[in-house]
């Protein structure tokens, strides 16, 4: 290799030593301690964050389509615990928009956490998300339980009415 080509070659691959600095020193300035560098949160943990966020958003959306507390209290469908159901719906209505916005923000946080190595304390964010999802799930379940319980009462009443009607009709037919 002649001198001019060698010069070009050296330009293409300058070395740290020629700039008065060792490559090792340079490398050390570009390192960080592995044990303190954090890590990406694994998928099997992060899924609880996703699940929590989705439940929170779902609860918020369901709360938006629920009838007003007044119509629940006075509508006549809720034969028992109508007041409690109305209070619960009132509470869910108040939480609906914050829950949707908060849930979306938490989903955004998950997108960050699934790509970037994070420290130990960021794991708590996932737990908070899961807890928020759990709370949302419990509230929804409570309302669903009240709804189903009242529905069951209505079904029982209608069934009794039909049975009485059949008995009356049978009695009339027999008489």
């Amino acid at each position: 290799m002649d001198d001019s080509r060698l010069g070009a070659f050296k330009e293409m691959a300058p070395v740290a030593g020629e700039q008065g600095r060792s490559a090792l020193s340079d490398f050390l300035t570009h390192t960080r301690v592995y044990e303190r560098a954090g890590g990406v949160i694994p998928r099997d943990l992060l899924q609880f964050g996703f699940l929590g966020s989705v439940v929170v958003i779902g609860t918020g959306l369901v709360a938006l389509i629920l009838p007003s507390p007044n119509s629940i209290q006075d509508g006549g469908f809720f034969l028992v615990w109508a007041g409690q159901a109305a209070s619960l719906v009132s509470f869910l209505h108040a939480l609906a928009v914050p829950a949707i916005l908060g849930g979306l923000a938490l989903l955004g946080l998950d997108l960050y956490l699934m790509r970037v190595p994070t420290s130990e304390r960021w794991r708590s964010a996932v737990v908070v998300q899961a807890a928020a999802g759990g709370a949302g799930g419990i509230l929804s379940t409570l309302f669903l339980a009240l709804l189903v319980f009242n529905l069951a009462i209505w079904i029982a009443i209608i069934a009794c009415g039909v049975a009485v009607l059949i008995a009356v009709l049978a009695g009339l037919a027999g008489g």
């Binding site: 070395v15 740290a16 030593g17 020629e18 060792s22 490559a23 090792l24 020193s25 340079d26 490398f27 050390l28 570009h30 390192t31 960080r32 301690v33 592995y34 044990e35 303190r36 560098a37 990406v40 790509r115 970037v116 190595p117």
Partner: peptide, 29 residues
């Protein structure tokens, strides 16, 4: 993934720092 900092275990990093202090001067790493 680590903001440009290559993760190196603490013990190995300490050894590399010692090598640097000892005057180990490679052109390339």
């Amino acid at each position: 993934g680590y903001g440009g900092g290559i993760p190196v275990p603490e013990r190995e990093r300490a050894k590399l720092v010692e090598l640097d202090r000892a005057g180990v001067r490679p052109d390339l790493l």
